[in-house]
Design a protein around this nucleic acid. Structure first.
Lengths: 346, 346
DNA sequence: CAGCTTCAGTCAACCGGTTTCCTTGAACGG
DNA sequence: CCGTTCAAGGAAACCGGTTGACTGAAGCTG
């Protein structure tokens, strides 16, 4: 049997290349505190290649070097927004020689577990945290045993390690669009209170609504889910129940799922989209184009958020000073069929 | 400064408990090849507890023991189906003392990378593979350096390590429902060819359609995405374009995304759901209830699939013989608004 | 009471890398 | 011609666990 299931180890490479373990290690890690003949370097690389050598991550981590792994903590994997972010993070990490692991953190329930399993057990060098919120257990754990980390999407004020998008701009973009169509009463469905991107989006919405001189700009809060969208929509349209005209002619939501819930609720009330109510969602994902009517959304640079967060984290791991980062790509409107001039507008 | 960021190590626990490293290791790992006084055992546990001791996974792995980590490879994270499976896997793994890592495997592109990063570098003890398909590079890598693994959802024939659900039953359930409503011409949107659960579902559909004596049971294939659903729907309804009656009065899809695409396409053709065409999807997720009309689906035991796969894998890692497993929970119908009696039925 | 078990744990090697400090031979300067 | 320096690479300690072989003391046996 030509069984050869044994992993090649550093010594194997060393033997084949005719040098010592130390030399192989230094060459493969590209350390310049050692001078080697180009010819030797070459031999080492060839030997490693031919043996299919892969350093054992555990041994590496033990020896004081890094694990070359990061972990991304997201609050809800079922939210495809985070999947897009995760993809960006994964790709960029890979380009930088890191492995990005993905973990779901059900709003704190799993945070401590994840922290223990991943950080305390030395599996990762740093954390990408997309699930932060005030009072989150992770913040506590991080202050007790600090580990390189960045907060993305949901920021932590004053941490100096936030990687975010220009969410204020997304509110402006959505409102400008609706305003230009002639809407004067626009409702906003915000996320749960206390979560930064949600608060920022809401503030920007209110400010810009005032600046545009909208007649009404009510806000309702709800979870980022379909159900949250339904509840908030009913709240915004409450006056409708008695048969009078709806108090708003357009709704701008914080998440795609909320928009889906909102659309369902609006149609169930017997109102039409976009004739009676226009809807604008946040985040552009394939499903948006397949809803009926297709959903107009503000596309956020989610993938870039992932890459930028990894850039920042890796820089921090390698000792660079940290600072807040805002992804430069601007949100932009993806026009579909869920928005139109309000009836009765000139 | 009360800085104490140093992780507690095995020796620290040993010192506090007043015993040797070896004893601590054996006690904490619950090995019975060692006899200890209950009192000593107690001291060790208390010491570990008070120091917040967590074994370094790398050191552990190096010393020949396991890493206590698994990896789940899914073909598309954006498909919430896999998120549900992942949750089941994560929870069950945790109960068994393992950590379940999640990796996306874009149909083979990332498989080798993941395999290298996770298996070759010794980060995990085993693999849960949900992304298998014929000719997948992973199958090759696995035969070269075998690692404990199971295939879930998508099986690999003859591997003897498949963990699946009763997908045939889901076709039967869907068809029985439609047949009982009076539908005689039901179309099926299958997944891409060669992927097992898709093939099985299709076979079961055709067989049961024949058994029920349906007048027509056309099948169209498409990706598991919304776009795949649109294309397949247009194919099934092609005859409609000329204004004649649609060739089918109901459509049963392989995935939720396909169903969403199908609904969009049907409505865009000017047909009504469910009056003109009934739609039944597969997999029940929150969004299904928020579509307009709400989607009737066959709920598959996804979470259980995740737990069962972990059970099988961990058993395999611990040396038990493997065999194919079918999750016992049966698919069941979730009745919503997208199905009704066909018009013209008695 | 010597010898044999059993109990309760200890010793030390080992896993596969990384890193610090050395060694060695050759070239070079004076 | 001899001491220095430098390029090129090697030896060995160490990281934090695990594990099988081993040991001292107590208990049992005859």
């Amino acid at each position: 049997m030509p069984e050869q299931p044994v992993r090649a180890r550093l010594v194997d490479v060393a033997r084949v290349a005719g040098v010592s373990k130390a030399t192989v290690s230094k060459v493969l890690n590209g350390r310049q505190d050692l001078s080697v003949r180009p010819e030797t370097r070459q031999r080492v690389h060839e030997a490693a290649e031919s043996l299919g050598y892969r350093p054992h991550s555990g041994a590496r981590a033990l020896a004081g070097a890094s694990t070359h792994a990061l972990a991304l903590l997201v609050p809800a994997l079922a939210n495809p927004t985070y999947v897009t972010i995760a993809r960006g993070a994964y790709q960029r990490a890979r380009e930088l020689g890191y492995l990005s692991l993905l973990a779901e953190d059900f709003d704190g329930q799993e945070a401590d577990e994840s922290f223990n399993d991943l950080v305390q057990e030395g599996r990762v060098d740093g954390l990408l945290i997309a699930s932060a919120r005030p009072g989150h257990p992770l913040l506590d754990a991080l202050s007790r045993s600090p580990v390189p980390h960045v907060f993305l999407n949901r920021s932590v004020e004053g941490s100096g390690r936030n990687v975010t998008m220009d969410v204020a701009r997304s509110s402006v973009t959505a409102l400008d669009h609706l305003h230009s169509l002639g809407h004067q009463a626009v409702g906003h469905i915000a996320g749960p209170p206390g979560i930064t991107p949600s608060e920022d989006r809401k503030q920007a919405f209110l400010q810009h609504a005032e600046k545009l001189g909208l007649a009404a700009a009510p806000v309702a809060s709800g979870d980022f889910t379909e159900d949250g969208g339904v509840a908030a929509t009913l709240e915004l349209l409450r006056a409708t129940a008695d048969g009078s005209r709806p108090p708003v002619t357009a709704i701008y939501t914080s998440s795609l799922a909320q928009a889906i819930g909102a659309m369902g609720a609006i149609l169930k009330l017997g109102l039409r989209i976009p004739e009676d109510i226009s809807v604008v969602g946040n985040d552009d994902l394939p499903i948006a184009g397949h809803l009926v009517p297709p959903l107009t959304t503000v596309a956020m640079p989610l993938y870039e958020l992932g890459t930028a967060a990894v850039d920042a984290l890796v820089a921090a791991i390698e000792g660079a000073p940290m600072g807040d980062v805002v992804v430069p790509t601007e949100p932009h409107l993806v026009l579909r069929g869920s928005t139109a001039r309000p009836e009765g507008a000139s």
